[in-house]
Amino acid sequence: MSRDPSVDEQLETSMGKSMRKPYTPKMPATWWLRRRAYFLFIVREVTSVFVAIYCVILLVGLCRLKEGGDAFESFLVSLRSPFSIGFHVVALLFAGYHSITWFNLTPKAMVIRIGEEKVPPLLIAGSNYVAWLVLSAALIWIVLKG
């Protein structure tokens, strides 16, 4: 319909019934398989599922650590299973993809201006990567030393 309904009315009365019949295509359920960018977007969103599952595993691990003794021992045994190792490898890949996409997108949301110039996006993303490296190294060192 045109924005002014009275125009449509005028057209109808002066020229007969309107022949307009706008066609609205339906979005297929597989829309995200049609373009590489859409597929990668869904992969990025799915990373959160692996992160959440890991958080639950970490929580359970903390509970077992708190109980100690046999409970913690059996937790370690299940961590050594091929299923657990496999899961952690896959989850680590997805988590890494989350980190990379997150750091690369941060400069878009966080624009820091100095006068007329923008802080270069590479600098913002870059400092995130550096923080990632430093914090990861620190964590690994602290836990393995203990």
Binding site: S48, V51, Y54, C55, I57, L58, G61, L65, G68, G69, F72, L76, L79, R80, S84, I85, F87, H88, V89, A91, L92, A95, G96, H98, S99, W102, F103, N128, A131, W132, L135, S136, A137, L139, I140, V143, L144, G146
Partner: peptide, 26 residues
């Protein structure tokens, strides 16, 4: 932000390093 900065390292430590440590000090 937390997930991006820390989760990969945590996954590595608890999921892929800890299981291979011989009798970890509980």
């Amino acid at each position: 932000v937390i997930a991006a900065l820390l989760i990969p390292a945590f996954m590595l430590v608890t999921g892929l390093i800890l299981p291979f440590v011989d009798s970890p000090d509980e």
